[in-house]
Design a protein around this nucleic acid. Structure first.
Lengths: 149, 149
DNA sequence: TTATATCATAGTAATACGATATGTTTTATA
DNA sequence: TATAAAACATATCGTATTACTATGATATAA
């Protein structure tokens, strides 16, 4: 039940873009890599997936970099993780395409479906904007404990 | 975000024991393997984990086999999966022992915690007894759709 | 004694993970 | 117009995990 570094880094990358974005400006992976303490070469690979999917836009050459293509409100965590991780289903047998001859009389499958629903419920219910706001609150140094998002 | 065959087979194995158990009797892995269509040698390895943890008891020699040690009510799906899969945490950084220097100012971590809680909520809320009952209903061939468990 | 079962451990092919390494292409700017 | 800075594209690679198979030892009912 693990989420790999690919998906985790992708989320932090998108979050970094959301937090550091400035109108009309673009951010270098090198800077993101430094802030997030992730290999910049590895981040390049990850962002290329986000780029091809149209989640970010890029500017090449000096002063180049990346920026979110849409507003942070328009991305859910689920979108980002599904793109980079592939399916989030806990087992193959709850995937759309999959057919299991046992299926209709398998109680275990009900468990997997419930996990799948629970995970999707969480991830599709959090937007990048909410996460960015939470992050800003955290960085301001909380004077009080609160449970945002 | 995958649950491996080890955990899945372990659950089906325990479910098989729960459904086919008879007072004072014991069930051969060979029979479970045949019913579940799983390699019996692989099942042997998996059940040895359950055995060492005291989840099942074994009888050696001819007419030997396995049986649940406790009543099906006393096992949750979470117990079985944690034993065979290890931690169900989606990322290392939400594990007890783990320390992350970023921790207190990382919004992503809140996402992982929510996933962890959601998954645990589901898995710790289903007992083997409930699952066995659901399986029996399914096998009776449902005349009506209902949402048990 | 024999056959049947659990128990224990080693091996193994295939795949995924988490990168690194090496280079190509684009483009702002000196 | 040359240079350097950035994105972009692949190839490679060590390690670990997965999902088993293989081999054999041990216990025991008949």
């Amino acid at each position: 039940m693990k989420i790999s570094t690919k998906g985790r880094y992708a989320l932090r990358l998108m979050l970094d873009l959301a937090i550091n974005e400035k109108e009309g400006e673009v951010i270098r992976i090198k800077d993101i890599a430094a802030r997030q303490q992730i290999s910049d070469k590895y981040l390049e690979q990850i962002i290329s997936v986000l780029n091809r999917a149209g989640y970010v836009r890029s500017v090449r050459g000096p002063q180049g970099g990346y920026a979110l293509k849409r507003r942070p409100e328009e991305y859910t965590v689920g979108m980002i993780l599904r793109l980079t991780e592939g399916s989030l289903a806990p087992v193959p047998c709850v995937e759309e395409e999959f057919f299991c001859e046992r299926g209709k009389q398998c109680a275990a499958q009900e468990v997997w479906k419930k996990i799948d629903d629970a995970v999707s419920g969480v991830l599709d219910g959090i937007t990048l904007a909410e996460l960015a706001e939470l992050q800003r609150e955290k960085q301001r140094g909380r004077t009080e404990e609160h449970d945002a998002v």
